Amino acid sequence: MVASLGWATTELIMSRGIPLWIGAWGHWFDWKYIQMSIDSNISLVHHIVASAQAFAMETFVHLCSLGSWTALLARVLVTGLLALSSSALYVNMHT
């Protein structure tokens, strides 16, 4: 979980942070930098939610005393819902 959050942060800084910092200080204002900053915020929230999902699922399984098969089904359903919501967000942003 920590390693994935570290890679997500590195990807965020290298792909969006540096171009935003360098390009936004130019002489001409361009709306693409505003769009890049909004996109990076959405990406950051997505990575935080994906990282917190494992902790939330473990807590849920422990509190509800679920069996192994029920816990597996719950994890698959939650992961599927997260994947569908992220894909819908991605499609809405890039259309």
Rank of each mutant, 00 (worst) to 15 (best):
V45F: 03
T95D: 03
L82D: 08
V61H: 08
S87F: 10
M57C: 01
G17Y: 07
R16L: 14
A88I: 05
P19D: 07
W21R: 13
H46R: 03
I18L: 15
S4H: 09
W69A: 12
A88W: 01
I38P: 00
W7A: 14
S37L: 10
H94C: 00
L81A: 10
W21Y: 15
I22F: 04
I34T: 11
A50Y: 04
S40C: 05
Q35E: 09
A52E: 04
L44V: 11
T79E: 09
G23I: 04
G23F: 06
D30G: 11
I13Q: 11
C64E: 13
G26C: 12
P19E: 02
G26L: 10
G26K: 13
M57I: 01
A8E: 09
V45S: 10
L12E: 08
G67L: 07
T59D: 11
T59N: 12
S87V: 01
R16P: 02
A3R: 15
L44M: 05
W25G: 13
L84M: 03
M57K: 10
R75D: 00
I48P: 02
V76Y: 02
S43Y: 05
Q53F: 09
L81M: 10
G67P: 06
T95R: 08
C64T: 09
I48N: 09
T10F: 14
G80P: 06
F60A: 12
S51A: 10
G17R: 07
L81D: 05
L89T: 06
L73C: 07
L66F: 06
I38Y: 08
L63V: 00
F55T: 05
A54H: 11
L66N: 09
I42G: 04
S4M: 13
I13P: 08
A8V: 00
Q53R: 00
A71C: 06
G67C: 09
W7L: 15
T59M: 13
W31V: 14
I48M: 04
T10G: 12
W7K: 13
V61S: 03
L72I: 08
I34Y: 06
A52W: 01
L5T: 01
V78Q: 03
E58T: 01
L77R: 05
G23R: 11
G23S: 08
S51D: 00
V2D: 14
G17C: 07
F60C: 03
L20M: 15
M36R: 00
M93S: 09
A54G: 04
I42D: 03
H62A: 12
D39Q: 01
W69N: 03
A88G: 01
L82N: 02
I38H: 07
A56P: 02
V91G: 02
I22R: 03
V45R: 12
H62M: 07
T70A: 12
M36L: 14
A24L: 13
A83I: 07
L72M: 12
E11D: 11
S85G: 04
R75E: 10
W28L: 15
A88K: 03
V2L: 15
Q35K: 14
M57E: 01
V61R: 06
N92R: 05
R16E: 13
F29P: 09
N92W: 05
W28Q: 15
I34V: 15
D30M: 13
M14P: 00
A54W: 06
L63Q: 09
S65L: 08
T10E: 14
L89P: 04
A56R: 09
D30N: 15
A50T: 02
M1I: 12
S68Y: 00
Y33L: 03
T95H: 01
L12H: 11
